[in-house]
């Protein structure tokens, strides 16, 4: 029973379950342009990079975070070649290991891999329209479910982002004199909701203090909205996150808060091992 409690305690397990379900729905029900070997390639690429990174700094290898990054990549990134998928996974986890300020990595790993690969290669792209309207409620429900059950530790950034973004698209509609059906349709985007509940909410790359997170969410929403509607790039919010990530250390410097770390008594079989507590926490 203690194992189950430990399983439920770590919010990453909830994320893994939800994201895996989305990958399965995407592949089997929505016939995404996502061959299974790409999924495997991304998984292996992410885990291998994490393993090497952990070995390099003498930290215990933990497969859960790279699994989440790999799942996010398979949901949001489409490529014409497995090598690009693997490269995205290596870039994602590599950025986490290498681009760090004061012990905290700067970029959300999946976001970094996604944007860099899709900007560099025409054979890789982000497909924001791949979800129909039907699973929107399911994704929203899963996201809200995470908040209600306390699985999402940075729920404030999710809700703040969604609130600001909704205000912007509704504001635009009012200014243009458009019917509200248009902003409602714009908010019913699977990619937007996955981003909101499973990417921007990453506790490791958001500011430590709540106030800073709210301001940060507003900034991401504003920049994402501008890229989307001013520069006509449908992946606006995903771009916005990578653009704003470098200023997170500034937020942490001026508005201080509690640094997040994943629960340490994670795997049931390792309970009671004393040296566990002195290890560098998993990423």
């Amino acid at each position: 029973m203690e194992g189950l409690a430990a399983f439920r305690h770590d919010p990453r397990h909830y994320q893994i379950i939800v994201l895996s379900s989305l990958v399965l729905i995407g592949v089997f029900y929505y016939a995404f342009q996502l061959p299974w070997w790409h999924v495997v390639g991304v998984m292996i690429g992410a885990q291998a990079t994490q393993f090497i990174g952990d070995r390099a700094v003498g930290r215990r290898y933990d497969p859960r975070s790279p699994l989440i990054s790999a799942l996010s990549l398979t949901i949001l990134l489409r490529t014409g070649s497995i090598w690009l998928s693997i490269a995205a996974a290596i870039l994602a986890i590599g950025s986490k290991c290498l681009i760090r300020v004061k012990g905290k990595h700067i970029f959300n790993p999946a976001n970094f891999g996604l944007v860099i690969i899709s900007l560099l290669f025409t054979g890789a792209w982000i497909s924001p329209g791949q979800w129909g309207a039907a699973p929107i409620f399911a994704i929203a429900l899963a996201g809200m479910g995470g908040i209600v059950t306390g699985k999402a530790k940075r729920w404030d950034v999710s809700l703040a982002f969604l609130g600001f973004y909704a205000a912007l698209v509704f504001g635009r509609a009012i200014w243009l004199g458009d019917p509200f059906a248009i902003p409602v349709h714009q908010l019913q985007s699977g990619a937007l909701l996955i981003f909101t509940f499973f990417m921007i909410s990453d506790p490791k790359t958001t500011p430590d203090a709540r106030m800073a997170r709210i301001i940060y969410a507003a900034l991401v929403a504003l920049i994402g909205f501008t890229i989307q509607f001013g520069f006509y790039n449908s992946a606006g919010i995903i771009m916005a996150l990578i653009l704003t990530a470098p200023i997170v250390p500034l937020f942490d410097k001026f508005i201080q808060g509690q640094r997040y770390s994943w629960p340490k008594f994670s795997l049931p079989k390792s309970k009671g091992v004393s040296h566990e507590t002195v290890q560098i926490p998993a990423e």
């Binding site: 489409r78 490529t79 014409g80 890789a124 792209w125 019917p179 409602v184 349709h185 006509y232």
Partner: peptide, 17 residues
């Protein structure tokens, strides 16, 4: 009008299957 409130927006992908 009801089901397509917004104009059609497109994107070119790298998918040439």
């Amino acid at each position: 009008a009801k089901s397509f409130p917004e104009d059609l927006k497109f994107k070119t992908t790298g998918d040439n299957t």
